[in-house]
Design a protein around this nucleic acid. Structure first.
Length: 480
RNA sequence: GGCCCCAUCGUCUAGUGGCCUAGGACGCCGCCCUCUCAAGGCGGUAACACGGGUUCGACUCCCGUUGGGGCUACCA
C-alpha cells in the first residue's frame, strides 16, 4: 500500500471553527496512525476574501489543538503557475472553453434554468470557433474559462464513508476554472494541487460530496489520478442548523479562552462522527491515534453539545497532573488579577491539587481559588447570614468563643497535618455543642467566605496554619 | 425548483436478519457516600420517523412518504 498523504486545506476567509477543526483532526489522526504525511495547504485563491490574519488564526488554532503538520503551509496564491499550466492543458484538449458572458448575464440565465429544473450551459460560448475566441481575447474582452462538462455520463465513485455515490453529468453545470482576472477557482486548484502534492486521501466535509464528481471529471481531463475520498458528516449547531457565526462557528480559540483544554476538545470532536465501536469515550492522544479508523465514521450529521464538551473537559481537568495544568491556568489567573502567581508553583500546586476535580473549565479556577491565593477575598453575604447571624445571642457567643479557642489550638498544634487538624476540629465541634455540620459550616465561612468548598480538613491544611489562625481570629468580630 | 446525501433515547452513539423485552455516554431525576459543594458509586427516565414490501423472522435488506442537510457562484 502506498504511503498515506493527507491534507487540511482551509480557506482563510473565516475562523477555524469546530467543523474545520474536526476535519483537520481526522486528517491528522489518519496521518499519525499510518505514519503518513499531513500537509497544510491554504486555499486563498480568492484574493478578495482571503487574508493573512485569518490564515494565521487558523494555524494558531491548529497548533493549540496539537495538530502539527509535516509540510506547508503552502499558499495557493503563490502557486498560480501550476493552475495556469493545468488550465492550458484543459483548453488544449478541448475540455474547457473560453466564455465571454458577463456575470450578470450568467446569473440571470442560470436562475432561469434553475427555475425550469435544469442545469445551465453556455451554449453561446461553448462552441465558438477558436479563431474568433483568439481575436476576442486579443481585443481585450473580459472572459473566463469554463469546463466543458460532457453530456449524459454517469460519474460513480466510492466514498470511504458514504459508499457508492453517483451523479449524472446532466446535473453538473459548466463550472468556472479561471476567473476573468486569470486566477483559478476552487475546483481547478484543488485538483491540480491534490495531484501535484501526491495526496492519497481527500478527507473533508460532506458539503463537498456533490462537488466530487466535478473534480473527478477534471482529473480525467488532466489525465491525473483522482485521490481516494472520505467525506465527513457535518457538525450542526444546537438548533440542528448548519454551524453559523451565532451557532457555534466561532473560532476554536474561543474555546481555549473559555477554559477548554485542547485534548478535551479533540477527544470530543473525535466522537462527533466517529466511534471506536466499543464503550470507550475518554481517550489519551495516543489511544485516539491507535483506535481511529475511517471505516468507522458515521454518515449522519451530528449536533454539537456544549454540555458534553464541558463534562469531558472536567474529566480531563481532574485527570491532568497539577503541574501540567499550571501553564494552562496562568492566563486565567492573570486575567483575574493574580499575575503574581506566575512562577509561584509552590503556592499554586497544592491549590490546583485541591480544586482540579471540581472544575468544568479552566476559567472556573480563579474564582474558586480566591481564598487560597489572597487574604483579600469576599465573604458571601449568604454564607455569613446563614452561618454567623445566629438569632440567639447565647449561641453566638458560644460559637465565638469556640472559634477563638480553635484558633488558639491550631496555633499551638505540634504538627499541622491532616490527621491532627481533623482531630482538633472534630474535638472542637464536639465541645461546642453544635451539630458537626453547623460548626464545620461556620469554620468554612470563616476560612473561605463560602458555603461550598472542598473538604474542610483539606482546606485547612492547604491554607496553612498561619492563615487559618488569622482568619479564625479575624472573623470573631462578625460574631460580636 | 433540480440533483446528491442522511434518518436509533433531548444530544453523541453501539447495533451490519434471530444475541434487542435495543447497549453505552452527556443531560435530567432519585438513592448512597458525606462537614458543604462537586467528584464518585448505585438505580431510574428516554429512541429504532412513517407506510408498504422481502423473509419463518426485521432496528438491520428493498421501495415510497415525510423530515433534515448539502450542491446548484468569476466562495471554498
Amino acid at each position: 500500500m502506498s504511503r498515506v498523504r493527507v491534507r487540511f486545506a482551509p480557506s482563510p476567509t473565516g475562523f477555524l471553527h469546530l467543523g474545520g477543526a474536526r476535519t483537520a483532526l481526522f486528517n491528522w489522526l489518519l496521518a499519525r496512525k499510518t505514519r503518513g504525511t499531513f500537509v497544510l495547504r491554504v486555499e486563498d485563491t480568492d484574493a478578495r476574501r482571503s487574508s493573512q490574519e485569518m490564515a494565521e488564526g487558523i494555524m494558531e488554532g491548529l497548533s493549540w489543538l496539537g495538530l502539527d503538520w509535516d509540510e506547508g503551509p503552502f499558499y495557493q496564491s503563490r502557486r498560480l503557475e501550476i493552475y495556469r499550466e493545468a488550465a492550458k492543458r484543459t483548453v488544449a484538449s478541448r475540455h474547457a472553453y473560453t466564455c465571454f458572458c458577463s456575470p450578470e448575464e450568467i446569473q440571470a440565465r442560470s436562475a432561469e434554468s434553475r427555475l425550469a429544473g435544469r442545469i445551465w450551459r453556455c451554449r453561446r460560448c461553448r462552441n465558438q470557433a477558436s479563431r474568433l475566441v483568439r481575436s476576442r481575447v486579443a481585443a481585450g474582452e473580459s472572459h473566463t474559462l469554463r469546463f466543458r462538462v460532457p453530456a449524459d455520463r454517469r460519474i460513480v465513485f466510492r466514498d470511504q464513508v458514504y459508499g457508492k455515490v453517483s451523479l449524472s453529468t446532466e446535473n453538473i453545470e459548466d463550472f468556472t476554472l479561471l476567473r476573468s482576472d486569470g486566477s483559478p477557482t476552487y475546483h481547478l486548484s484543488v485538483v491540480a494541487d491534490d495531484w501535484e502534492m501526491g495526496i492519497s486521501h481527500v478527507i473533508r466535509g460532506a458539503d463537498h460530496l456533490s462537488n466530487t464528481p466535478k473534480q473527478i471529471l477534471l482529473h480525467e481531463a488532466l489525465g491525473t489520478q483522482a485521490p481516494g475520498y472520505a467525506h465527513l458528516p457535518l457538525i450542526l449547531g444546537p438548533d440542528k442548523k448548519r454551524l453559523s457565526k451565532r451557532n457555534g462557528a466561532e473560532s476554536v480559540l474561543e474555546y481555549r479562552d473559555q477554559g477548554v483544554l485542547p485534548m478535551a476538545l479533540c477527544n470530543y470532536l473525535a466522537l462527533l462522527g466517529w466511534s471506536p465501536g466499543d464503550d470507550r469515550e475518554l481517550f489519551s492522544n495516543g489511544e485516539l491515534v491507535k483506535s481511529f479508523d475511517l471505516d468507522r465514521v458515521n454518515k449522519a450529521n451530528a449536533v454539537f453539545d456544549r454540555r458534553k464538551l464541558d463534562w469531558m473537559n472536567s474529566r480531563y481537568l481532574a485527570g491532568s497532573s497539577s503541574q501540567d495544568l499550571v501553564p494552562h491556568l496562568q492566563p486565567f489567573l492573570e486575567r483575574s488579577g493574580y499575575p503574581e502567581e506566575r512562577g509561584n508553583d509552590g503556592r499554586l500546586l497544592p491549590v490546583i491539587r485541591l480544586l482540579k476535580s471540581r472544575l468544568n473549565r479552566l476559567s472556573d479556577f480563579p474564582e474558586m481559588a480566591g481564598p487560597f491565593l489572597t487574604d483579600d477575598f469576599d465573604y458571601e453575604s449568604k454564607a455569613v447570614n446563614r452561618h454567623f447571624s445566629l438569632a440567639d445571642p447565647e449561641q453566638r457567643s458560644r460559637l465565638r468563643s469556640r472559634l477563638e479557642i480553635l484558633a488558639e489550638e491550631y496555633d499551638q498544634l505540634q504538627e499541622f497535618n491532616l490527621e491532627n487538624v481533623e482531630a482538633v476540629l472534630r474535638g472542637a465541634a464536639k465541645e461546642s455543642g453544635f451539630k458537626i455540620g453547623v460548626f464545620f459550616g461556620a469554620v468554612r465561612v470563616a476560612l473561605t467566605g463560602r458555603t461550598a468548598s472542598p473538604g474542610i480538613f483539606d482546606v485547612i491544611v492547604t491554607l496553612g496554619r498561619q492563615r487559618v489562625v488569622e482568619r479564625l481570629t479575624r472573623c470573631l468580630k462578625l460574631l460580636q
